[in-house]
Design a protein around this nucleic acid. Sequence first.
DNA 1: CTCCGTGCAAAGATTTTGCAGGAAC
DNA 2: GTTCCTGCAAAATCTTTGCACGGAG
Lengths: 140, 140
Amino acid sequence: MNPEATTNPAERLRDYGLRVTAQRRAILSAFGAPEAGHLSADEIHASVSAELPELARATVYNTLNEFVRAGLLRRIDGFGSALFDRNVDLGHHHFHCLGCGGLFDVRPTGAAAVSLSDPGFEVERTEIVFRGRCSECATA
Amino acid sequence: MNPEATTNPAERLRDYGLRVTAQRRAILSAFGAPEAGHLSADEIHASVSAELPELARATVYNTLNEFVRAGLLRRIDGFGSALFDRNVDLGHHHFHCLGCGGLFDVRPTGAAAVSLSDPGFEVERTEIVFRGRCSECATA
DNA sequence: CTCCGTGCAAAGATTTTGCAGGAAC
DNA sequence: GTTCCTGCAAAATCTTTGCACGGAG
């Protein structure tokens, strides 16, 4: 289904015209599977530091920006610090739990039908954020 | 239609359980009509400074947070610095122009039909952001 | 060999917090 | 008279930028 699913990090980087370095491979692996969570720059830095203690914060930021520019990651704002999502698939949206602060991927029904009647706007993408309580926080 | 429309700032503050001070009245007026734009803390500080040169940035931030907590303003994240929207009406959403960076209020069709089929999530509100080009940037 | 990526440090920007005086109620 | 708000300053985050070295291509 997804052509990237079987590609390893190094090839993926080359495919996107980025040089392959240990830091970039490590940062990319920090996301684990494409379904992995949404990570902040800080979490990534912490996670990769175990493997590469020298890794500078600035490099994490620079690299993440490169990845976003290349389309390898998706950036999500509005949650304090920026989060990065390995799941680039448009059509998936987010649920933000007001209880625990967690962020979940969701696929709402009817999302495709949402549109602007005003022809003055050229819509490129549509992002939907639901806020409320996740199952754990709702019962608690 | 809207009971607030005819209420003056002072009453409005009292209604929300907030003390009425010159600073708060000024900050609230900075938004002008309820349809006024989306302002950043910095823009508000600049705007009110003309009237109250003493006004501290910290006060602007504190006050805006109070207002949001009281439901008087709506906070919009994801555009660099936080923006504050006098239009609290849910059901109105936003269009973000990738050309000029402008933020516009929109009322998309079909928005009411968007929902999560997953019953585990208790949705409280739904926020939709469209990104693309506004009429000016599209023709340029 | 050339250029890009990295580390380091420093700067920038945004937002929050501690504290004492003063105003609102 | 209390309590909350304000101003000031300082701190805490988060993120970007300048520069010289070193590794990728």
